[in-house]
Amino acid sequence: MTARRTAAAVTALGFAPLALAGLAAAPAAAHGSMTDPVSRVAACYAEGPEAPRSAACKAAVAASGPQAFYDWNAVSIANAAGRHKALIPDGKLCSAGNSKYRGLDLARRDWPASRMSAGRHTFRYKGTAPHRGSFALYVTKDGYDPSKPLKWSDLEAKPFARVTDPRMRGGDYVFTGTVPRKSGRHLVYSVWQRSDSPEAFYTCSDVVFAGGGGGGTGGGGGGKQSPAPTPAAPTASAPTDDRIEKDAGKTGGGHGTHGGSTGGTGTTGTTGGTSGGTTGGATGGTAGDTSGGTTGGGAGDAAGGNEPAADGSASPLDRGLAETGGGSATPLIAVSGAGALAVGAAVLFASVRRRAGGGRHGR
């Protein structure tokens, strides 16, 4: 009996590492959304997915259903790999081509908006399951019309702010950027491209610059004033930590709810997978096309020698705050180690059985 118990224990020890290896190999769920300026999905979630207050959020919930807004931090494409423009068609930038979030693509002048002005601005991105990666922020061009579906060509070609592995403070990624001079209503589009996975997250934040109305079209700093809204668009508010914690059980969870798991809507004819082996590079190139993985700047990069780069170059301890789970080699190491342990356990198991058999024959 003792030998049998010993054999069972050895078998359990052999399979335990394999189970742990399976957990290590599973991708960590990285989620988040822009909260300064507040993204559309975060603003509507803060209003309440079941009974939003603003007309725009009511329309968005009617189009997408409440669950999309309980899952406010999961607007993503699992296999983006920097190919944002190839995977997300015009008119569906805010939903990342995911029909679950189609309400975010509604073309309206009355989306809840954040006030913004030109110059240095501190941006906040709530990282409910943080990971290493790069952020790139784009703003709409002068003449942007919020009553028309958002197209890639509506965004400035270069990001005005970009950062890699910013520090986390109070559950938020915090970094600064130089906002260009604008007037009236505009939109800030963010791309968070994970560097340890091809997954990327997207947000649309409606903003109103001083010198223009909350519901009119955006003009340049030196252009004529935008028409005043009738009525003025409501002010966007970010969800509180208490609300996020309270609603934790209502979120959809895993990546199976992400339209990005299938590489967007498929209207572009592009499927998932990596492009040239890159999994990063959300911070370079033209708007939405970062498959080259470059992090270089160029004309139009108003951030220049951006402070976020310094934040992202923090000590290893600080950088560790911006990630969960291991690197890309972690699953391989875990599986290899588990395999070695399993082989050893099998040998020990066989030895125990031989000894047990010998004991029975000897009696």
Rank of each mutant, 00 (worst) to 15 (best):
V347K: 12
F201V: 10
A314W: 03
A342W: 14
L93V: 04
G285P: 01
V61C: 08
T11L: 15
L18N: 11
S197A: 13
F123P: 02
D110N: 09
R4N: 09
A322D: 08
A118T: 06
F123I: 06
R4T: 11
A345Q: 10
A238N: 05
T122W: 04
V41Q: 03
R353P: 10
R124D: 04
G305I: 01
A21G: 13
A59Q: 08
T283Y: 00
A60G: 02
A16I: 15
E156K: 11
S114I: 01
A210Q: 12
P89H: 03
G218H: 00
E245N: 10
A28M: 05
A157I: 00
S226H: 04
G127F: 05
R4E: 08
T330G: 01
R185V: 05
A26G: 01
A129S: 13
R83P: 00
R243V: 14
A346K: 12
F15I: 15
L23M: 12
V335A: 14
G252T: 14
V75D: 04
G256M: 07
G213S: 11
R194D: 10
G253L: 08
A16M: 15
L321Y: 05
D36E: 13
T217L: 11
R353L: 15
H258P: 00
V352L: 11
V41T: 14
G272I: 12
R353Y: 03
K58F: 00
G218I: 00
H258Q: 14
P52G: 12
G249S: 13
G269T: 13
S183Q: 12
G281W: 00
G362W: 03
A62D: 09
S195F: 00
G97I: 04
N306E: 05
L104I: 02
T268K: 13
I77Y: 06
G358N: 10
P52D: 03
S195C: 01
G254W: 05
G212R: 09
D142L: 05
G312I: 04
V179F: 07
G223S: 13
A59L: 02
G305W: 07
T230V: 11
S99R: 08
V343A: 15
D318R: 08
A19F: 12
H31I: 04
K151M: 07
K151T: 14
T235F: 02
G212N: 11
T178N: 13
G253K: 14
S315F: 05
D36Y: 00
T324D: 04
C94G: 02
T279Y: 02
G133A: 13
G253N: 08
G327V: 10
